[in-house]
Design a protein around this nucleic acid. Structure first.
Lengths: 205, 205
DNA sequence: ACCTGAACACCGTTCAAGT
DNA sequence: ACCTGAACACCGTTCAAGT
């Protein structure tokens, strides 16, 4: 399988992998289907078999991005150093939320171009896969909110309504950092400030 | 001056105006310099005199967008229906903040593509003009925070640190709405929920 | 000073034809 | 089923030349 077969067999994955690299490194605008095909060593029309057009490839990248984000959030949430397991006190909950928030903002700043692609909206008509991947990525966040309600750190009520302000604060901070509106070197500090404020806003009253 | 003079005289403004329309209506990707020149009735090389390349035009559009946003925020802030003028009580402050927040989110959803362009980051090297326009646009928001501190609705301290969480919550909500992650028809309701939460988080403790 | 027209090197997309 | 090669209609950018 080391010989370059006529039937590549692995073209789709190789295209995605290579495309993500150039998007992360050079931005979406720098992604050319023709150059991509050249890099992979295939004719410029070959990708069409796997991605009908450029937007289809971009949607696939967005979907993959959400999967990465989900994995990163889950890993951060699982990385619980407190002895008792899941957070059951307010302080422990705040620490857990801080870890997930940090992971979210880190993903955003490390993959700014990919994040822009993921939140570009206007995906192709048949893009339920992207929306599904997005929902899955956000689930850890809303699951965390439910746990917060269980331990009394977060006000009761509809989980979405309580979770949206937390979600918005996090995503807004990430977006302002990647846009350069807020200085990237203040990232750690700003995550703490925003988390503290958002958690006060979400606390029972 | 109704005759199409050889020296157009007004080309820069006409290009900007037309470009903004197609960006708002069709998105950044649909903006072609050649088609733009065609629409304005000028050779395809003519725009180069006013915008060295495509990114220069995009930066000019972003700058113009921030100016529009600033005007809209100022108008919303000035539209004070309470008798006594500037807000001096907590309730009045919350109402005032709500108006500005609504204006911000409305601008975002009405000009989603333009907003993406404005917060695209990676502007050209000599893009201090864009950054300056952005700062000016955000000033009403931070001025509002200072007033909130003066009337005791917002915790004291460095204005930026107190303002950033409010800013992040607003921008995050706007971004999630335009991306389609949150449903656009719940806009009014979500603005209220997010504002209430963010203001609780910013309140003195 | 401002604009034109031809030229260059790239695109994305399509489609008959090959294996 | 998967890929190639030529073709089409578009780009952004450059530059000598026109007024």
């Amino acid at each position: 399988m080391s010989t370059r077969a006529y039937h590549h067999g692995n073209l789709r994955e190789e295209l995605l992998e290579r495309a993500e690299r150039t998007v992360v490194e050079q931005g979406v605008d720098a992604l050319s289907l023709r150059e991509l095909a050249r890099e992979v060593g295939v004719s410029h029309a070959a990708p069409r078999r796997h991605f009908p057009d450029r937007d289809a490839l971009l949607d696939a990248l967005a979907e993959q991005g959400f999967a990465r984000l989900e994995a990163q959030l889950r890993a951060a949430d699982a990385d619980d150093t407190t002895p008792g397991g899941a957070a059951t006190t307010g302080d422990a909950f705040a620490a857990r939320f801080g870890r997930v928030a940090t992971a979210y903002v880190e993903f955003a700043t490390d993959h700014a171009e990919l994040l822009a692609l993921m939140f570009r909206g206007k995906h192709r008509p048949g893009a339920e896969a992207v929306a599904a991947a997005a929902d899955a990525a956000f689930r850890p966040l809303f699951g965390l909110v439910a746990d917060g309600q269980a331990c009394g750190a977060v006000a009761p009520g509809d989980g979405e309504d309580v979770g949206v302000p937390l979600f918005a604060a996090l995503h807004g901070l990430a977006s302002l950092l990647t846009a350069g509106v807020l200085p990237a070197q203040r990232r750690r500090e700003l995550v703490e400030v925003v988390c503290a404020s958002a958690l006060r806003g979400a606390a029972p009253r």
